[in-house]
Amino acid sequence: MAKIALITGATAGIGEACAHTFAQHGYDLILTGRRLERLEKLAHHLNDKYNVEIAVSSFDVRNREEVVRSLDSLPSKWRAVDVLVNNAGLSQGLDPINSGSYEDWDTMIDTNVKGLLYVSRVVSNWMITNGRGHIVNLGSIAGKEVYPNGNVYCASKHAVDALTKGMRIDLLQHGIKVTAVHPGMVETEFSEVRFKGDKDRAKKVYEGFEPLKAEDIADTIWFVASRPAHVNINDILIMPTAQATATNVIKKNT
Rank of each mutant, 00 (worst) to 15 (best):
L90A: 03
I141K: 04
S156F: 10
A246Q: 09
K251T: 13
W78L: 01
P183H: 08
A142N: 13
T107K: 05
S101G: 10
V81L: 02
P183A: 03
A218V: 02
L36F: 14
Y153W: 05
D216S: 10
N232K: 06
G208P: 05
G13M: 02
R227Q: 13
S140I: 09
V61Y: 04
D60K: 09
K177Y: 01
I236L: 03
W105Q: 01
V81Q: 01
S120N: 06
H158M: 12
R34F: 02
A80N: 15
N86I: 00
G26D: 14
N253L: 10
P228V: 12
V178S: 15
G139K: 00
D95H: 08
H25I: 05
D198A: 11
T254V: 09
R38G: 01
R64A: 09
F22I: 04
L74M: 09
D198L: 11
V146K: 01
H44Y: 06
G131L: 01
E189R: 10
T241M: 06
M1G: 07
A19F: 04
V181G: 02
D48I: 05
D161W: 12
A244R: 13
L84V: 13
D106N: 08
I169F: 11
V68E: 00
E37N: 15
G197P: 09
D216F: 08
T111Q: 01
T179I: 10
G89F: 00
F59L: 11
G166V: 12
N151R: 04
D198F: 14
Y153R: 14
D95F: 04
K177I: 11
E103Q: 13
G131N: 04
T32K: 05
R227E: 05
R35V: 02
Y50C: 06
V146T: 08
N51V: 04
A12L: 02
D106E: 10
N86K: 00
P228M: 09
S124D: 14
V113H: 00
D28C: 06
L84E: 12
S226L: 03
G184V: 04
F195D: 11
A55P: 05
S124F: 02
M127L: 11
S91Y: 07
A2V: 15
